[in-house]
Design a protein around this nucleic acid. Structure first.
Lengths: 350, 350
DNA sequence: GAAATTTACGCAACCGATTGCAATTATGAC
DNA sequence: GTCATAATTGCAATCGGTTGCGTAAATTTC
């Protein structure tokens, strides 16, 4: 609308009777500029209200000092922690970040990728949506040599680093824990097995069952979108089985919370009738009754590590081309929802 | 790192033996370009992998088709809904958005403002942090005529539109509701009264008390950061009063949930001993026991309206200069946490 | 005090798209 | 076939920094 003319380095140069080169260099604190000159430049810059023009700079430099971040959602503690971790590292290294979220939609994820590519981010950190099955939309980045690090929701790739937790192990641990509590019929509620995190937890679940000679039944595995409605439906579905399960491993705390609520509404006692293990260590897991046994998801750490990888690559300290997988520790946090009566309370965490 | 040369409109022009002007116009689907030429341009553009260079374009056009959004946090349903609303409207109007969050810190909010200003957003939508007391960091936007719309967390201003709910009324309603339930000693847990939303709810609370001849006591008002720890401390503090309250209005559902949990741990029965009203209608409000009476916060609507204001201004359809306040409807959702025994269940919502 | 360095600064060519205005070509009217 | 009008296209300046290279001035060296 208002085409107010901007204050540029030309204005500073004119005012001080020096060249724009010197002004530009002074503004960058370049060593080849006299200290006095720098001082004068900064002074008049402030006086006449100079503002750096990112476009001119980026256009010339072909770099933006900006790192793009694509996440699959925003409203979870996990993601917020990751973002905090990323921000910490990137800002210390002098990079800005642009956050885009896909709301678990492949289409939006792809659109975001295109957009960030156009915005010429210097690097990318991403977590895939539920239904993202291929990584084609990231090809332009690879072609241009822009480093990408995937975290949490990843896909096998030849040219990027991935930062994850050991989902297989978590799935195994969760199930093993339920078995240790005496559960014989353990169900599993999760999301699309196309997504690595769910696929691997599922494998871990199966492994634990078979290792302990418990039957694996298709009916006991419910795959949905982990929404509130899905959680309720899952509960009703399981309650209608001839043999209702005595343990359920649910890959999301919110879903687990709704599930538990639905059970309670139907007179089922958790954990005595059905023991529950959730996932993510969301705030809600400690607030509902019973408190949910879950897995701690080290968000900040994941964010920091992912960001550090990208930054290291950009600064030329390290090359990401070599495929690289970083696995971060995650822990089972045992709370009330999975502890059958006989267990001594002393081992209950908070 | 890798200074691969970009494909530009010059490459297309050379290939087709036409001028860059024509290519540029063809790419924009300008009417003054022959249809056949356009077709050829798009074809070769695709073939040689042309990518629009945002910087060159923005530098020349002095506009970015991007709207900045500054929020005070990310992990709440409310904010996520607002973002969804904003995204819907802006993307339909052909604008991108850049999301920045301040984590309730004034310093980060100001830094984000500077950053978005440098990124030359065409418009700004913002919600203030807890401790933001002045709007100086938005001056550069005003000076350049960049429209700003504040939502929810706002500050009186002469040159921006604000989109809010009637917080005074909510505070009044919440308190009135508790009074109707028979509460005589109503406490209030909230955050910094510098922030409009809390200040106004507080005023509403006071008004309701005085209107019903209930004493207002400083001790009954606890101001903190609404964190988990703060919620617990508040609970202990109130329990130590000689006369513990029989109703509490808490301006945040998460805080209310922790507060209720702490009460229960100490043998207090909600709502019978103490009735509770929360705020925001977060997912958690329906999942804990008892379900929390709260206020619905129309996030999507707020986002849409805020975005529409900015877009309308940018398209020249409307001027935001004239101060403008838009108030959105919000509703008290009555659930178990505030309903004293005698109340007929039939009016209980879900 | 002349030669060798070092320190500061300026020149001018970019980066890639946009756009007012002029020029050329095509189409239509008579 | 001529002239007016409309449809296309090109010229060239512009947006605001950046940076390799060259040069003048200041400092050091012997």
């Amino acid at each position: 609308m208002t085409p107010k003319k901007d204050v540029t380095i030309y204005d500073i140069a004119r005012q001080l009777n020096i060249s724009t080169s010197t002004v530009s260099r002074a503004l960058q604190d370049h060593p080849a500029v006299n200290k006095l000159t720098k001082k004068k430049v900064f002074k008049t810059a402030g006086e006449i209200g100079y503002q750096y023009n990112t476009f001119a700079g980026s256009l010339r430099k072909k770099s933006t000092s900006t790192i793009g971040v694509i996440v699959h959602e925003l409203n979870s503690n996990f993601i917020t922690s990751v973002l905090a971790g990323i921000e910490k590292v990137t800002s210390e290294a002098g990079y800005d970040i642009i956050i885009a979220h896909s709301s678990e939609s492949y289409t939006k994820e792809a659109a975001n990728a295109v957009n960030l590519f156009h915005k010429r981010v210097d690097g990318l950190i991403a977590s895939l949506a539920f239904d993202t099955k291929n990584l084609d939309h990231y090809q332009p980045f690879h072609k241009k040599g822009i480093p990408i690090v995937f975290f949490d929701r990843v896909e096998p790739t030849d040219n990027s680093t991935v930062v994850v937790i050991d989902n297989f192990k978590c799935g195994y641990q969760a199930t093993k824990h339920l078995i240790d509590q005496g559960c014989k019929r353990i169900a599993h509620i999760t999301a699309s097995l196309n997504r690595n995190v769910y696929a691997q937890r599922y494998q871990g679940y199966k492994k634990a069952l078979s290792e302990h000679n418990l039957p694996f039944e298709k009916k006991q595995v419910i795959i949905n979108d982990l929404s509130e409605e899905a959680a309720r439906n899952a509960a009703y579905q399981l309650l209608q089985c001839t043999q209702i399960p005595d343990g359920v491993f649910i890959t999301n705390d919110f879903t687990a919370a709704v599930f538990i609520q639905t059970l309670k509404e139907n007179g089922i006692v958790v954990p005595d009738d059905i023991a529950i293990v959730g996932f993510n260590n969301d705030a809600i897991s400690k607030l509902i009754e019973p408190k949910i046994t879950t897995f701690n998801y080290p968000g900040i750490e994941m964010g920091e590590i992912a960001a550090r990888q990208v930054v290291a690559h950009l600064k030329g300290e390290q090359n990401l081309q070599l495929t690289n997988t970083i696995i971060i520790r995650s822990d089972l946090i045992i709370r009330e929802s999975s502890l059958k009566k006989h267990t001594p309370l002393s081992i209950v965490g908070t």
